[in-house]
């Protein structure tokens, strides 16, 4: 049994990985073999064989934990005592948590708007130009980079060296400031502007997603619409404003809401770049800190539930807009 739990050498780890995959294949194979008796077993038995493992995992790993977390959010830090809404009261009334909420609001408003705007403008500008695929690849690439990696990349851009003779800046942004004759800044330490510098990183990561989806939507605009507008003398910015944007409205809503949801749960960037210090924490980071660093399980649960509750209206809006779009069609 111990062999399955503690793997410390490379060979052991790889072997364990192969064994895990084979074990999974064997179990699934056995289940499928058991239900594969054409015409002799009712459909629901076959369905249970195909669906059983998935439903079981979702019940144990998603439904039960979610309910248990909601329950836990009404209990004290070690879960021993019922405290009602105290945890939520703490989140909404304490000064430090109000900063966290305000930061989260800034993220959720700014990141989707700027990301979608940039992605849209860029997709429109490079659409059907000679260097389209290269231009898109450059903006798309950060999507493959982890948020941790992106955090390190940008931390280096923001790197600060004291402004003394003989000391040269090694961060790009401060070097630019020095070239312009401005004093170098501690970008990640000075609140409240440091939150904006973190937001830049998220925009940098997400713009590729926005661009890809919107670019596909722009390409799907029927030629005759564009042609008719051109014959009417519409061009340049007016074309963008009155033809392109209204035609791709459903795609815009999808991008805005998707980015908003991802942003709401942003954790890695804050964790990597500031650890949530200097007034930069957001709800998802504070959840981790409270639940797994401060061991205040009740408060952590309340923050997780808060995330859950905040996601719902965004998704509801998305579903509603998609319904409307389908009705128009």
């Amino acid at each position: 049994m111990q062999w399955f739990l503690d793997a410390s050498t490379t060979g052991h780890k790889l072997a364990l990985m192969v064994v895990a995959i084979l074990l999974f294949a064997a179990v699934m194979g056995a289940i499928l073999f058991a239900v594969d008796r054409p015409r002799r077993v009712p459909n629901w038995v076959v369905a249970a064989g195909f669906l059983g493992p998935t439903v079981l995992l979702l019940l144990v790993g998603l439904v039960y934990p979610a309910l248990d977390t909601i329950r836990g959010s009404f209990y004290s830090r070690d879960g021993s005592e019922f405290v009602g809404l105290d945890n939520y009261a703490t989140v909404f009334t304490t000064d430090s948590f109000q900063t966290v909420l305000l930061n989260t609001l800034l993220w959720v408003v700014l990141v989707p708007l700027v990301t979608t705007g940039l992605g849209l403008v860029y997709a429109y500008l490079v659409d059907r130009t000679r260097f389209e695929s290269l231009a898109k690849a450059l903006v798309f690439l950060p999507m493959a980079i982890s948020m941790v990696g992106a955090g390190v990349i940008w931390k280096f851009v923001y790197e600060y060296r004291p402004d003394q003779p003989g000391v040269r800046q090694i961060g790009l942004l401060n070097q630019l400031l020095v070239l312009l004759g401005i004093e170098p800044q501690q970008f990640l330490l000075n609140a409240p502007s440091n939150t904006f510098w973190l937001i830049v990183v998220m925009i940098w990561i997400q713009a590729g997603f926005a661009m890809t989806v919107l670019s596909a939507a722009i390409k799907a605009i029927p030629d005759d619409i564009v042609e008719a507008a051109r014959l009417d003398g519409v061009g340049g910015i007016q074309m963008f404003r009155y033809v392109t944007v209204p035609s791709i409205r459903p795609a815009l809503v999808v991008v805005l809401t998707t980015v908003a949801i991802v942003t709401l749960k942003v954790f890695d960037i804050v964790r990597t770049m500031t650890g949530g210090q200097f007034g930069t924490s957001v709800v998802a980071n504070e959840f981790y800190t409270q639940a797994f660093r401060q061991f205040n399980v009740g408060l952590g649960a309340a923050l997780a539930v808060l995330l859950f509750v905040l996601v719902i209206p965004i998704i509801a809006y998305n579903v509603r807009q998609l319904r409307l779009a389908e009705e128009i069609r």
């Binding site: 998603l62 979610a66 749960k265 639940a291």
Partner: peptide
């Protein structure tokens, strides 16, 4: 199953 997409993973971590 479709609706379970809305559950943020943070909600499940402690349990």
């Amino acid at each position: 199953v479709f609706a379970l997409q809305v559950v943020p993973i943070q909600v499940t971590l402690i349990p």
